[in-house]
Amino acid sequence: MSLLEIKNLHVQVGGNEILKGVNLRLDAGEVHSIMGPNGSGKSTLAQVLARRESYDVTEGEVLFDGKDLLAMKPEDAACEGLFLAFQYPVEIPGVSNAYFLRSAMNAVRKYRGQDEMDAMDFLPKLREKMKLLDMDEKFLNRSVNEAFSGGEKKRNEILQMAVLEPRLAILDETDSGLDIDALKIVANGVNAMRSPDRAFLVVTHYQRLLNYIVPDRVHVLVDGRIVRSGGPELALQLEESGYATVGTAAGAA
């Protein structure tokens, strides 16, 4: 059984159909990349999978580890092991990063029937993850994402991923706007988490990220449909020739 199985997914936003029948299978241990031009529906797909409720699913089915993902609330999907690294992480003034991270982790632990962790046990674990992402201690006491630089916000997303240890991580343009050093740090964070029982869906506009996070499969999303799928070499080909050339050639996942 695949970890994620998307079957004929149709999604509307405000009456406009954005996804027009997406099919995708992703197995544990794999890294897949979804590439596509602006407006192709990449972010919509990521948000729908994370259960953003402002999108209307009009047709299709999504199974996450065999369970009906589309019936889950966002918090339930997260507790089941799905994680979305946001393209635009949200600032939450007045909530410290440390408190937020511990609340999130304890929510997930509670759902799984594990004991909640107190600050004393949690902090050492958190510091270890922060070291991996080259994050300063002072991040902990700052409000979530407030006045963070673009790179800091993206690193904070990866830190949350490292703390929550999801089974499926969706990275929505985590590379956009990052300088090369920040990109390497983020990619290292992701690569350190690759494992046989975890999968990644890397949504990106640019091929550059895939030099650092090498995918098993690349899918090209154009106008709400996956028009081509292939190995890592497909990303390079797109970089050379652009999305126009993939045209409407039919391709299945």
């Binding site: 953003r52 409720e53 609330k73 999130a104």
Partner: peptide, 19 residues
């Protein structure tokens, strides 16, 4: 903000209280 917190596993009522 509410969706962001919920996407990290925090239930809706707790997320509202937190905000």
């Amino acid at each position: 903000a509410l969706f962001y917190l919920r996407s990290r596993g925090i239930d809706e009522a707790s997320a509202r209280r937190l905000l």
